[in-house]
Design a protein around this nucleic acid. Structure first.
Lengths: 206, 206
DNA sequence: GTCTATATCCCGATAGAC
DNA sequence: GTCTATCGGGATATAGAC
């Protein structure tokens, strides 16, 4: 952990990593919209110009936070899937983990969905998401040999997990363990219900 | 429609309504975070201080936009439900309309979910949502006499519809009619699947 | 790689005239 | 109800010294 004394200088520390940490901290308090390079600099006790030695602009720093978010998501959530034996249960666990992760690391979730980052300008973000997507799609495909159905099911599962997070944040119940567990369980059960009736996702589809 | 000539004055027009329209326009171009009282004033050709005769601060103007959003949602989406005869089909139509509405009026959707408005400070927003919620819950309850199941189903349906909108916006496919129709159909089908397997939403629930 | 200093711009909100 | 004028603040980003 780099030094962060308010008045101190910052020679030869890992400012890049410290800036990412500071960004997460600020986003946690003020939201993505409330984050600024200047505020991050202030918290680290460095000049407002210092971050520009590591990030070309504000969006590049946020993109680095997004990459960090996907890496952490993969490390925290995906391993838990292997404790289950069926693809359906694994996907339910992924949905549960998705909600738990977002609740535990709200700033990371916000960067992914509210930072308004141009993915074309920051391809490293999608690259970081690839490992997660692979694990996800492997499970989905194990449930249906049909390519079209796999796509529809994947879309429905992703939308539902995301929606449960938004609903949880919107309900403003705070980060209480009980409320998080309830939201995560709801997401997992909704995933199982979608899987159970997945045949309805493609009938008559244009 | 109030006058909006760039250099012109604005005596005795309906500035309040014009500000709401201008806000929607700005949000459409720059997002909620990019909206400012100053920019709205500039577009209407009025002094930056003029809006404060109608709204105490920025959040009050955004709250008025949110109320407008719910009113318009109710007017555009809810009537379409009555063309169907079963609660399941009506809820599917509501999900379809939810996605279509959000795609057609993205700024309104953004205000509701990304403006970060303190609902305790703006109770008029939830009041405006009540008509929609009543229609929604009436359908849900018609599907299950059980109170606990109704709550779980409502939660799952709302999350899923919202998630499909987020996914659609995230996919960046633009407002093409084809892409919108596809996303809306997906939301409707996911709703039907959740309804079909709704019994899975409450088994063993703590 | 970090500093000091600065240019440039935008914002929210208020005071007081008309 | 709208105007002019302004205060006070904060942001991004760059230039040049060390």
């Amino acid at each position: 952990m780099p030094a962060r004394a308010k008045g101190g200088r910052y020679h030869h520390g890992d400012l890049r990593a410290a800036l990412i940490d500071a960004a997460i901290e600020v986003i946690g308090e003020r939201g993505v919209r409330g984050f600024s390079m200047a505020e991050a600099s202030r918290r680290l006790g460095v000049a407002v110009s210092a971050p520009y030695a590591h990030f070309a602009d504000r969006d590049e720093l946020l993109a680095a936070v997004a990459v960090h978010a996907y890496e952490r998501f993969y490390a925290e959530v995906v391993p838990g899937m292997s404790q289950f034996n069926t693809p359906a249960e694994q996907l339910a666990e992924l949905a549960r983990g998705y909600v738990r992760f977002a609740a535990a690391h709200r700033p990371l979730f916000e960067v992914l969905y509210e930072a308004g980052l141009d993915k074309a300008r920051h391809p490293e973000i999608e690259a970081a998401a690839r490992l997660i997507d692979d694990a996800f799609m492997t499970c989905v495909r194990a449930l249906s040999g049909d390519q079209a159905l796999s796509e529809e099911l994947a879309s429905a599962l992703e939308a539902t997990a995301n929606g449960h997070v938004v609903l949880f944040f919107d309900s403003n119940t705070g980060p209480g363990e009980e409320a998080v567990a309830k939201a995560a369980e709801r997401a997992a059960r909704a995933a199982l219900a979608l899987i159970e009736s997945r045949h309805l996702l493609i009938t008559d589809l244009g």
